[in-house]
Structure formats: C-alpha cells, structure tokens
Amino acid sequence: MKLGIMVNEGPYTHQASDSAYQFAKAALAKGHEISRVFFYHDGVNNGSRLTVPPQDERNIVKRWSELAAEHKLDLVVCIAAAQRRGLMDKSEAKRHGKDADNIAPGFRISGLGQLIEAGIEADRLVVFGD
C-alpha cells in the first residue's frame, strides 16, 4: 500500500512525531511504500538540525534523517508553517536576509500543495497530531 504521513506536532513535547516514526518504520518493514512525510504546525521543528538532545535520549531529528536516507523518503516541511517558526534552508535564509539556515539532512521545504498531492496520490494519508 502507498502511504502518506502527516506530522503535526514538534519533537519531544508531543508523542506525534515518535508515533509517526514508529509507524513509518513498521510500514516499511512490512513492504509498504511511503510516498511522503509532510510536517505541519509545530511539526516543522522535527526538521531542525540544530537540536541537541541529551545523549541518553532518542534523537528524533536524526532518526528521521536516517530513515529518509535509508528508504529514500520524501520529508517535506511546510514553507508557511516553517517561516512562522524559524525553520530555513539556505535559499529561504538568503531570500529573507537571515544569517543562518537550520534544515536537517533529508528534509526539504515546500508548499501545502505537497500535502494535498500526498492525499491524492497515496492510498491512505495517516495524520499524527494532537
């Protein structure tokens, strides 16, 4: 089955990103395809490479990046939600005159259309949020 995933909450504060990750891993292990993971609301913070959790804790951002590299996942951060919350890639930082970018490997910034497209293309869109 072709699955789309939506993550609506930030890392650590809320279970949503953990649950989405576990779901994605389990689905891939069963041979399902994940066409896209879309990060919205505070979920965009899952894509910040500047997080430094304590060493004895799970590294949520790194875990997504590694899963993306291993399975060629398309991790998309909503541009409008990202702009509000200070998540930038190089070109966004340049466009807005900011002195740094912070997007993690494997993530890309794009529009809400990517969420709608995931809903259209996937057999199921699974939403993880509050």
């Binding site: 919205y40 609301h41 409008a80 939600a81 529009g111 809400l112 259309g113 969420l115 709608i116 497209e117 259209i120």
Partner: peptide, 13 residues
Amino acid sequence: LESLEVVLIGAAF
C-alpha cells in the same frame, strides 16, 4: 488558522 490555510491552498486542486 493553519487548517484554513490548507483548505484555501487545497481548493486549487
């Protein structure tokens, strides 16, 4: 608010 933003963008599809 962000739900409504999805609805408005999604309308184009």
